[in-house]
Nucleic acid binder design. Structure first.
Lengths: 347, 347
DNA sequence: GGTAGCACTCGATGCACGGGAGTGCTAATT
DNA sequence: AATTAGCACTCCCGTGCATCGAGTGCTACC
């Protein structure tokens, strides 16, 4: 630990104290005083010595205190240091794995959306944080099969099967009834010409690929071309992201302040900020952690996020939890990772 | 007004005072004192007289005060009396109609779910209350057309067109790949035998109607029969109800108390209570109003609800708003009614 | 019946006070 | 030179207390 921690220029003792203060604060939500640390950390150091160490840590920007004569509280930088170097255990706890498994066991999923919804719920329940899972963007998914089905005199349902089992269905309006055999003819033409392409490719080149068909109903072809941005869009579901756990996360003491409570409700109702921050997570295969001031958006300065990408075939989504910065990183990071892996393998 | 109000045994003057207290309390959220009423109600009565009247109203259970020496506050019975007899104007305000119209105008809806979702949102925005709209139960809807589409080697999508334009699609799992022509054969058999029946009829009599088909893949027939409860269920969408406006409703001063705020969040996350109360609204064509203690469920004792049924063809759903009992009934009842009517005509 | 007056109640507000937890500094100790 | 003990100081927070204002209920009077 020493070697790593000294990236931040910390002595072993400083690192131990910082670690303990952060753990303590995460557990109790109260500023941590020198006396407590001195007693609980068995280094036989008096409170006074601890105070000196804590003062040093404060100089380095890792701890702060809300006011003179309160205990110490980690700063964003302190949490960052903790997450980068002082944390331990990158494996989910057995009991947590068991919890997840039992919740998933006797479920029958038929669509990927069901799985995602369930995972969002489990994630919020186990973490007591806000759980966010973005629906996978399917622009990179390859079209396996397309089907056109008349559902009423003026509407046609388009069903896209995408490789690795995702199904997207869209209803779209047509001017007049299209005979079934025309739809079938069109569908097989589309299958022939578009099968195996990614949706993005289809979107970009659709006109070139189908204008010259010999279908005797050019109007429907035009309609499809016109609607192609919607039909072959990246979005599987108009709800771009599933959210769960408002009730869970608001149990934390930081939300006994009604202003904060109000704020997080608005955050959730708005969705835009959340969708944006989920998108902003890079494509790295790893778990991404963002703490307070590390967010671009000022509305999120009081929160932390743990996010991980998952992939269903070549469609990629993100899963994350958001909650107070005082978050049990040790336990939650492996959990997010675990569920992301589950999602990637579930089909 | 007198004639009606005296169902409650009220004199004209009492009725006027009650009406004014309730309006005032709805507008300001503060207990209403005798002085205010005396000044604002131009009956040339002194505060002392008003006090006597209010004391009488209190004896009749229509008003109360939170503590000695606070102003008066309506009781549930007071609100009930107001709603039954003292309210006026059953027509939505022009500005509200305009608001709704502009929100709906340039929308392109292709499915009934879209319309419902949009209406839920508009309703919460215009009322500043929690808006709840239940997805229509389609058990009484008549099957117009059924379509079976293979979407992967082991899954089949069933698409039900229900008269009046509702479409329900369900994906279900099959053991092994079913050849397309078998599905088509089965679909036309189903269309022939089930077309025109209500989903409820189909659910109840499906085995009798299709067991004797000559389809050469009896396994799929069995599967359909086994899945029939799900395929032909009353539910259009697994989310039985759309909810919007948590942010809106929590702006009301009653939610500055964090306990109440917490409670309503839990109410929304739970959904069960809400679904149940929406179901409990009778089938009356009219707007139903429920106030505080009139709810069976104790979790709703602090709220009021305005609910109205709507119908899409023969599928019926309910639309409602829930918020503090201190609700602007005059304005909101016509609005709920208006949107219910819109929903019933929107297809 | 309506009104004026008055004592009373109760919540909200502001303030002083004291205890408790914790800090920072200095001087003494090892 | 590092550690520790001691001490003055700071700040939060709960409590008690006096005050104020809105509003009531009652009684006596018009």
């Amino acid at each position: 630990m020493l070697e790593i921690a000294d990236k931040y220029g910390l002595t072993l003792r400083e690192a131990l104290v910082l670690q303990h203060v952060i753990r303590q604060y995460i557990a109790t939500a109260n500023p941590v005083g020198s006396r407590t640390v001195s007693k609980q950390l068995h280094l036989n150091l008096s409170p006074a010595t601890i105070r000196n160490i804590m003062a040093d840590l404060e100089d380095k920007g890792l701890l702060g205190h809300p006011h003179t004569s309160a205990g110490r509280v980690p700063t964003d930088k302190g949490y960052r240091c903790y997450v980068d170097t002082l944390m331990q255990g990158m494996r989910p706890k057995e009991e947590d794995v068991a919890f997840i498994e039992t919740r998933l066991e006797d479920e029958q999923f038929t669509t990927i959306e069901d799985v995602i919804r369930k995972c969002t719920h489990i994630l919020s329940a186990i973490s007591h944080q806000l759980a966010l899972v973005s629906v996978p963007l399917i622009g990179n998914g390859r079209l396996e099969h397309i089907e056109l089905v008349p559902v009423s005199s003026s509407r046609v349902m388009v069903i896209l099967s995408i490789m690795s089992g995702i199904i997207k269905s869209i209803v779209f309006e047509v001017d007049s009834e299209i005979p079934r055999h025309v739809l079938q003819e069109l569908a097989s033409a589309l299958n022939e010409r578009l099968g195996g392409l990614t949706l993005r490719e289809i979107r970009e080149t659709l006109p070139d690929r189908i204008r010259d068909t010999s279908i005797d109903a050019p109007s429907i072809v035009e309609l499809i071309i016109k609607a192609s941005d919607r039909l072959f869009s990246d979005e599987l579901d108009e709800d771009r992201v599933y959210i769960d756990g408002v009730g869970e996360v608001t149990q934390h003491p930081e939300f006994s302040d009604p202003v904060r409570l109000r704020r997080i409700i608005e955050l959730v109702e708005n969705r835009n900020i959340i969708i944006h921050v989920l998108d902003s997570v890079g494509d790295s295969r790893d778990v991404t952690i963002r703490i307070g001031s590390e967010f671009e958006d000022s509305a999120l300065q009081e929160y932390s996020m743990i996010a991980a990408p998952y992939a269903v075939g070549s469609a990629a989504g993100r899963i994350s939890i958001i909650g107070p910065r005082r978050m049990d990183y040790d336990r939650l990071i492996p959990i997010v990772d675990y569920i992301a892996t589950y999602l990637s393998n579930a089909h």
